[in-house]
C-alpha cells in the first residue's frame, strides 16, 4: 500500500473515531475530554516538508471543526503542533530524515522513551492552546490548568493503548533502499 493511500485512510479513520465515538461517549467529568485525532499528524512520515505538514494540520483541524461546529478551535492547535513537530523530533533524535530506518515516528523508530516524550510534548501544546482558546471566551485560570492536565492524561492513555494494540507494520529501510 502506498504511503499516500495509507495516510488518507488513516485520516478518515481518525476523524470518524473522534467524531462518532470519542465525542459521543457520555461525559465522565467536565474536565475530561478524550482526544486522539491529532495522532494522525504525529504519525505523518519524517520526510514530509514543513509547509505541507502545516497545510495538512490545518486541514485536519478544520474538518473536525466543521463536524463540531467550532471553526478554528481545533485548526489553530493542529497548525501549532505541525509547526513544532520537526523541532521536537530534532531535539529528541538528532538525525536527518533520511537516516531513520523507518518511515514514520513510532516507538520502533525512535525508541519508547523518546517517542513518549515526543507525544507528551505535542499533546501538551495541542491541549494547552486549544483549552486556552476555549478559556478566552469562558472559564477561569484553575479551570484552564486542571483541564489541560486531565485532558493530556486521558489522551496519553489513549495513545499508549493505541500503540500497544495496533503496532504499525513498517518496513525496515536501509540507506541503499
Amino acid at each position: 500500500m502506498s504511503g499516500l493511500l495509507r495516510n488518507i485512510i488513516r485520516f478518515f479513520l481518525f476523524i470518524l473515531l473522534q467524531v462518532y465515538l470519542l465525542n459521543k461517549i457520555p461525559p465522565l467529568h467536565q474536565y475530561i475530554n478524550p482526544y486522539i485525532y491529532y495522532l494522525f499528524i504525529l504519525w505523518l512520515p519524517f520526510n514530509i516538508s514543513r509547509a505541507n505538514l502545516m497545510f495538512i494540520g490545518f486541514f485536519t483541524g478544520i474538518v473536525l471543526d466543521y463536524f463540531m461546529m467550532t471553526p478554528g478551535i481545533h485548526a489553530a492547535p493542529c497548525v501549532l503542533i505541525a509547526y513544532l513537530r520537526p523541532f521536537v523530533i530534532g531535539i529528541l533524535t538528532p538525525k536527518e530524515a533520511s537516516e531513520f530506518n523507518y518511515r514514520e515516528p513510532s516507538p520502533k523508530a525512535m525508541g519508547w522513551t523518546p517517542y513518549l516524550v515526543y507525544t507528551l510534548i505535542l499533546t501538551l501544546f495541542h491541549h494547552g492552546y486549544m483549552v486556552l482558546l476555549e478559556w478566552l471566551s469562558f472559564g477561569s485560570i484553575l479551570h484552564f490548568i486542571i483541564k489541560v492536565i486531565a485532558t493530556t492524561g486521558i489522551s496519553m492513555l489513549l495513545i499508549i493503548t493505541t500503540e500497544l494494540l495496533f503496532p504499525r507494520k513498517m518496513r525496515f529501510r536501509t540507506n541503499t533502499a
Binding site: A51, F58, G61, P71, G72, A75, A76, V79, L133
Partner: peptide, 21 residues
C-alpha cells in the same frame, strides 16, 4: 517561509474562531 506560513494559518484559524463566536 515556514514561520510566515505558520503565522498566516494561525491568523486564518483565529479569524474563523472570532467571527464565528
Amino acid at each position: 517561509s515556514t514561520a510566515i506560513l505558520f503565522l498566516v494559518l494561525q491568523v486564518v484559524a483565529i479569524w474563523f474562531l472570532i467571527t464565528y463566536n
